[in-house]
Design a protein around this nucleic acid. Structure first.
Lengths: 165, 165
DNA sequence: CACAATACGTCAGCTTTGTTGACATTCCAA
DNA sequence: TTGGAATGTCAACAAAGCTGACGTATTGTG
């Protein structure tokens, strides 16, 4: 490079590029949640239920506290969602054996069916996008997303990845 | 692997890879909104206000209907937000000259100040992530995000890009 | 011109999902 | 054994989305 970056002249770091990136995230996220949302709407459930179901499927036997950390909401908020899921027979809450204060969460067979429906819908979109973009783009996609995360959140993300490889 | 690609064995398209991508989007989005959220919380505003401010800044003079399309919410919902912003002197709503039914939206000087604060915070995170990931990763990031969007939403996204390059 | 369509605003009421505060239960360590 | 920390539940409230109905001003059309 002849012009030696007088601070911030790298093309992909201009304010306009960053702004476009921000908008891309905003719009992509809308589409990203649209498919599960459509399914959930027919069931009187919302995104919060989806998130709980997703992470219980991902880490069966997880405790409420654990789930709380991952989801980043208050326990009261999660509890409401969890209660309806338990009442509806999608989630089972088992008292911990070593520590009886803890509740360990599992999907029932019915819960697994819904999880499958939701995640199939969401994966279908991701698969189409990934295939269209190609493996190198996907690698870059993941790299930037991980760089965007707060360190604490990235830690949780990585724990999940390592837990179920 | 001796088994050749029998349809879907491409490594980056496995269900586990897709699931990780989904979780990456989820976690990254949380961090993505965290910085503006912190600022907004001190002002009795929420994410909805931020979105309105962002897109008015992006396309000054946009009409209410236009903003509605971009944000994908109902006019009642947007109106609530817009009303407070106008009352607080951050947004100005001008009757259209050619079509007097329309209201054209502009940020006031005060609105521009807040917009700047919010967008600086969000861009700082994006800039750090972009710089850390490098230009090729950023290109892939954008490619996948665009591929994830619904066609109709991608259209709106592109209109914005072309409008202010 | 009369009238339908469009753009915007508003009222009322409901849902989802977040919040804080108060409280019960359980465990553990001093 | 007892008091504090951890875990989970109940209650009440707030933000922000939604539908439906309606009013007003303006525009465009038959």
């Amino acid at each position: 490079m002849s012009e030696p970056a007088s601070g911030e002249t790298l093309l992909y770091l201009t304010d306009e590029q960053l702004r476009q990136g921000i908008e891309a995230v905003f719009f992509a996220y809308r589409s990203f949640t649209a498919d599960p949302d459509r399914i959930l709407a027919t069931l009187a459930y919302g995104r919060a239920h989806h998130r709980a179901i997703h992470f219980i499927a991902r880490a069966p036997g997880t405790t409420v506290n654990n789930l709380l950390e991952i989801l980043g909401v208050t326990k009261q908020s999660l509890n409401r969602v969890l209660r309806t899921l338990v009442e509806d027979g999608l989630v089972e809450s088992k008292v911990g054996t070593s520590d009886r204060r803890e509740r360990h969460l599992y999907l029932t067979d019915e819960g697994l069916v819904l999880e499958r429906r939701l995640s199939d819908a969401q994966r279908a979109r991701m698969r189409a996008a990934y295939r269209q973009a190609g493996p190198e783009a996907v690698a870059g996609f993941r790299t930037v997303l991980e760089a965007m995360m707060d360190p604490e959140i990235r830690r949780k993300y990585n724990v999940l990845r390592e837990g179920a490889p």
